[in-house]
């Protein structure tokens, strides 16, 4: 029997080969994907988030965790599909994520993606320098629940407002929850431009995303 603590530890500490081997072994032993997600992936993500928030983990650890999570989730998601047929029935929520137009800073956004994925969200990451129109077009097509927007520089913050204004202009404001974050943003400012939630970091972004999904349902 695979020891879940061992697998969790390998995942948290970015020991990729070991984590993949243990995951495959667990699946071969007949452990369901759902069980692995609930008992390994989600608790591991929480530990990584806590360690980052408390200054025990930094970017290198997050990058290694992300690399490991990516390869571990491949076989788990494939199994989940077999188990439930339509994986969308089981999803936590769908997020379209982007760094707004004019801004190329993506490290914060990438950490948010990692934590959202680690907590069961499906995330479509549009990258950096993404215009408002594209964010919205993709959110419609992807049937997203949340549009999550990042900007580091204060000079590019208007890009966030543009997305919210464009949603209103198209009569779509109530269809998507808008989550905002990034160094130059603040709770007050996010409220002023009409965002639904603001998060100061990736850990809080996950909590906010769960809240937004709860509110929608």
């Amino acid at each position: 029997m695979v020891d879940f603590e061992e697998l969790k530890d390998a995942l948290i500490n970015g020991r990729k080969e070991e984590a993949v081997e243990l995951t495959q072994k667990a699946l071969e032993e007949g452990i369901s994907a759902r069980h692995l997600i609930s008992n390994v992936i989600l608790p591991a993500s929480k530990v990584v988030g806590d360690r980052y928030e408390h200054g025990e983990f930094f970017l290198s650890e997050l990058v290694q965790y992300g690399d490991t999570l990516k390869v571990v989730m491949g076989p788990i998601m494939a199994r989940l599909k077999e188990e439930i047929g339509d994986e969308r029935q089981e999803r936590v929520g769908r997020v379209v994520l982007a760094t707004v137009k004019g801004d190329l800073h993506d490290i914060g956004k990438n950490i948010v993606r990692l934590f959202l994925e680690g907590n069961g969200f499906e995330v479509l990451d549009l990258g950096v320098d993404v215009p408002a129109e594209k964010v919205i077009d993709v959110a419609i097509e992807y049937n997203a629940d949340i549009i999550a927007l990042s900007c580091l520089m204060s000079v590019t913050r208007d890009g966030v407002k543009e997305v919210i204004d464009e949603l209103s202009r198209r009569g779509l404001r109530s269809r998507f929850a808008v989550l905002v974050g990034g160094r130059s943003t603040s709770e007050k400012w996010a409220g002023q431009i009409g965002a639904d939630r603001w998060a100061p970091d990736a850990v809080n972004a996950v909590d906010a995303a769960f809240d937004l999904i709860r509110q929608q349902s």
Partner: peptide, 8 residues
Amino acid sequence: HENLFRAM
């Protein structure tokens, strides 16, 4: 960023 922090 990611490549540098991986390489370190």
